[in-house]
Write a protein that binds this DNA or RNA. Structure first.
Lengths: 194, 194
DNA sequence: CGAGCCATTGATTGCCCTCAAATCTTGTGG
DNA sequence: CCACAAGATTTGAGGGCAATCAATGGCTCG
């Protein structure tokens, strides 16, 4: 969709689908910053006084989106006051999300971080099924690892162990949370291991 | 100065001194989000559509600051267009900082994170001395640990080993970077250990 | 039906946290 | 001016969590 460091030519409104926003380190490792859901703005570098995109955006599944050239941003902000105000509220909540991530990475074990990540995805994009709440796009162990700063191996082990205990069900690029409440207990408390 | 979750009654402009912004987890661990330097705004919850402070602010040394009641924010933004624009640029750069932190926490070892933290502090608040560049306020091993998601013990070991190699000089609540360039190499590369 | 990716699982290693105790620095009060 | 207390720092020993290394098995799609 767009690439890190690239000239910020446009900004977008996601109508349908899911987009993964990633940052790539100089040595090639990728970190997932966030997932964008339908209805959200993206590529709003202009609003923050930037001229290049700070991250890359990749469609997690097929998407439908609107795009405007970046130079229209000031016009929009002037013409629709609510547009501007709303944007800054969005930016504020992203800043908060980022800080939450920092706190989590600083204080929590890997299993708690993975649990939190799953719960966030479920809350954001969950679709109810007869087995539980499913994350509504294909997501691999590798993807989850890039969200939580761990490896796909560790994620795989955690999901396997949670599946044994009936907390989740998972398959190829697919995760369903069966018991959100018990998963939350695991995410918050430092009580029961694995 | 103000406390996390507290009603955001005021916003501030720091004139002199240094302020530590921290978040506290439910179980009492503290994570340092950032340090504020003279000339920066703080407590700008209002600009982001919040009514409570998202973090706590504590003076790292004696400070001088201006405070305005929060309800004046909209007035300021209207009266001085540059004021608003500048604020959002500030918020944008903080968002970027936070994302950088997330990437660092996800991909780097502890020694790299500590090196990056020292370099950032030196760049932000450094004062030139005849031995190198000193961080311009009292900062303990514990403080550095809270910035980097590690323990004071590990920070102590790292500083000791760096002092042996002539990269830094440190004392009680005091750190001086002697060779910023070599420290940067250590922060970036994954070559030489300890 | 084979190629390519995704996932699972075991074994091993090592970084860094935890626990523990001694030493140093600074400020205070007698 | 000295003794002492409180907090900061150093350093050692040991252990655990998760990364790394390694190999196999399973799912999809062309």
């Amino acid at each position: 969709m767009f690439e890190q460091e690239q000239e910020a030519h446009s900004f977008f409104l996601l109508l349908d689908g899911h987009v993964r926003v990633i940052k790539t380190t100089p040595d090639g490792q990728e970190v997932t910053v966030r997932y964008i859901s339908p209805g959200e703005l993206m590529g709003i570098a202009h609003a923050l006084g930037r001229t290049t995109y700070p991250a890359s955006a990749i469609a997690a599944i097929d998407c439908v989106l609107l795009a405007w050239p970046g130079h229209l941003w000031p016009k929009f902000a002037n013409a629709f006051p609510n547009f501007g105000a709303n944007t800054y509220k969005t930016v504020g909540s992203r800043l908060q999300d980022a800080h939450t991530r920092v706190v989590e990475m600083s204080t929590e074990q890997v299993d708690q971080r993975v649990a939190h990540a799953l719960l966030k995805l479920v809350k954001q994009t969950g679709r109810k099924t007869d087995e539980g709440i499913m994350i509504d796009f294909p997501i691999s162990r590798q993807d989850i690892a890039e969200m939580t700063g761990t490896t796909l191996h560790t994620v795989s082990r955690l999901l396997s162990s949670w599946e044994e205990k009936g907390l989740v069900k998972s398959g190829r690029e697919k995760v369903t949370v069966v018991e959100p409440h018990r998963l939350l207990v695991l995410a918050e408390g430092r009580t029961g291991k694995n």
